[in-house]
């Protein structure tokens, strides 16, 4: 996987899904007013991939999340992911329940009006053990800027073996210095791995 400069040789418009990042940070009231339309779309996507009993139960989980003001899209995508991977319905329900709980906690930290992409990435970070108060720190340091890149960098660094506390310090330092998104990409996980057993926390 490589990022490249624009070099069009063949363009095919295939109607890709609108990604989470393109979703605007709508207010809670706005999100609720969109709920009817959102759930109609959810039904359609889920209905085509799952037996009706499974689609209905997934719909119920998503419905309860949107009633709390949480975005539906990350949950829909996780359900579709489970469907594509051919796992049992119970595994999908469990995964959706975990994601809903993590997004709820993330929303308490960064606000229900945060973009869906911020909430789902924050939820992923919480699931790896990041303390919710860290999200509060990051929200404060980033102002109104998206949290996806710094949290994504933190998750990638720890996935590559960086000590979580060191990875976090590097990320929050950049955020406080108002660094550009590219700066997070440049963090080398090799600088942050544990060199002694007591370093790993």
């Amino acid at each position: 996987m490589t990022m490249t400069r624009f070099h069009p040789t063949l363009a095919l418009v295939l109607g890709l899904a609108t990604p989470l990042a393109a979703q605007d940070a709508s207010s809670l009231a706005g999100a609720r007013s969109q709920r009817g339309a959102e759930l109609a779309a959810v039904d359609q996507r889920l209905g085509g991939r799952f037996p009706s009993s499974v689609a209905l139960r997934i719909h119920g989980i998503i419905d309860s999340a949107t009633a709390e003001g949480l975005p539906a899209e990350p949950l829909v995508l996780r359900a579709l992911e489970g469907g594509a991977k051919g796992v049992k319905a119970d595994a999908i329900y469990v995964a959706l329940g975990r994601l809903r709980a993590s997004m709820r906690l993330a929303a308490q930290a960064i606000g229900l009006d945060a973009p869906a992409s911020d909430l789902s990435t924050a939820a992923a970070a919480l699931q790896t053990g990041l303390a919710p108060v860290r999200l509060v720190e990051l929200r404060s340091a980033r102002g109104t800027a998206s949290l996806v890149v710094p949290l994504g960098a933190y998750l990638d660094l720890t996935a590559r073996g960086a000590v979580p506390e060191r990875a976090w310090q590097r990320v929050i330092d950049l955020a406080r210095r108002k660094a550009e998104d590219r700066a997070y990409e440049a963090i080398d996980p090799a600088d942050l791995v544990a060199r002694r057993p007591e370093d790993r926390r």
Binding site: Q108, L112, P132, V133, V136
Partner: peptide
Amino acid sequence: RSRRKRWWRLL
């Protein structure tokens, strides 16, 4: 209220 939810419950 929205901002308080971010801060208060966590601190």
